[in-house]
């Protein structure tokens, strides 16, 4: 099985992850609890740090194993400056939000459709971050062509999980394997999901997908090592393996066989890093932050009149907003 047991226990406990907030909310630097400080200090650019963080996250997660209430060293940020990169502004908002208890935060994402150029970098970086197998995609970018040649326009619609306030995918789960956290993120307990896929049918946005146990390199002469790497979703080291006996699958280790979905890169945001799709957006079209903080960038953006949400008529109350 994977590793990172203590953090995952906190995530999946009956309190619906309330204890999980302990990570990151205590900013005090205690001896022995500050994780890989030197590594992060060496990285001068905060933006760069957030991009390469997944590479060192392996060490971060392992270092936090077995400790209750461990505090995480958040990336150090430069002092506020006029005209600073919005990524730094958002990271500052993020760190501010992490100082509060989980139930007082409300994570939202804002996507400015006018700025999206349809480069699909967010899709790819998400796949790289979460080691998504074939058939699983958390943030596709839907391309829409409007009009007829020669009067043609194109529009791009990135679609992460909308983390609905009233998620239709949650109550259908027969085993309580999915729920909405107090901070607004809808999560899946990979160790509890039985793979019935009822929640996939129930999602009106197609935001849930299933891991069919396949690899991109299936059918090729060599299995690419990259595909064997573990993912770190929900602060846990997930290794995709199949246990066999005489060729018969005894069981497939999660996340194989599970339903998977975008979780706003929970494992990153609780360590003070922005979701990977936000960090890699070349047009700075995706924003992330705490809607409960009126001073945050996202709060200001969603207060604008040109905001829309997908399928509002369903009453799902999505936490992803689009700027038109």
């Amino acid at each position: 099985m994977g590793e990172g047991g203590e953090d995952y226990k906190k995530f999946s406990n009956k309190k619906r992850g309330v204890e999980g907030q302990q990570i990151g909310e205590n900013g005090k630097k205690k001896k022995g609890q500050v994780i890989k400080r030197e590594v992060l200090k060496k990285i001068s650019s905060t933006v760069f740090a957030s991009i390469v963080a997944p590479a060192i996250l392996d060490e971060v997660v392992e270092a936090s194993e077995g400790r209750n209430g461990v505090s995480i060293k958040l990336p150090e940020l430069p002092p506020p400056q006029p005209n600073e990169d919005v990524l730094i502004t958002m990271m500052r908002d993020l760190q501010k939000a992490l100082q509060k208890p989980m139930e007082q935060r409300k994570w939202v994402m804002v996507i400015d459709l006018r700025k999206c150029v349809g480069c699909h970098a967010c899709t790819i970086s998400c796949i790289a971050e979460n080691k998504l197998p074939p058939g699983v995609v958390y943030r596709p970018v839907i391309e829409e062509e409007i009009g007829k040649y020669p009067n043609v326009a194109r529009r791009f619609l990135p679609r992460p999980c909308l983390q609905c306030e009233n998620p239709p995918c949650v109550p259908v789960c027969p085993v309580n394997a999915t729920w909405k956290r107090p901070d607004g993120i809808v999560v899946v307990d990979y160790k509890a999901c039985i793979g019935c896929k009822y929640c996939i049918s129930a999602c009106p946005y197609g935001a849930r997908t299933s891991d069919y146990g396949e690899y991109y390199s299936d059918g090729t002469p060599e299995k690419v090592q990259y595909e064997e790497l573990p993912s770190y979703e929900y602060h846990y080291k997930w290794k995709r393996r199949k246990k066999r006996l005489l060729g018969i699958i005894l069981y497939e280790q999660s996340p194989i066989g599970n339903v998977l979905k975008c979780h706003f890169c929970l494992h990153r945001i609780e360590r003070g890093l922005l979701p990977q799709c936000v960090t890699t957006c070349i047009g700075r079209a995706t924003f992330f932050g705490d809607a409960n903080d009126p001073e945050s960038l996202v709060s200001k953006l969603i207060a604008q009149p040109n905001v829309m949400r997908l399928k509002e008529e369903l009453g799902t109350n999505p936490r992803v907003f689009y700027l038109m």
Partner: peptide, 15 residues
């Protein structure tokens, strides 16, 4: 499709 264009957004035999 629950959202038109989803299939073309990311092409895969499971999607």
């Amino acid at each position: 499709p629950v959202l038109p264009g989803l299939e073309e957004a990311f092409v895969d035999h499971r999607l």
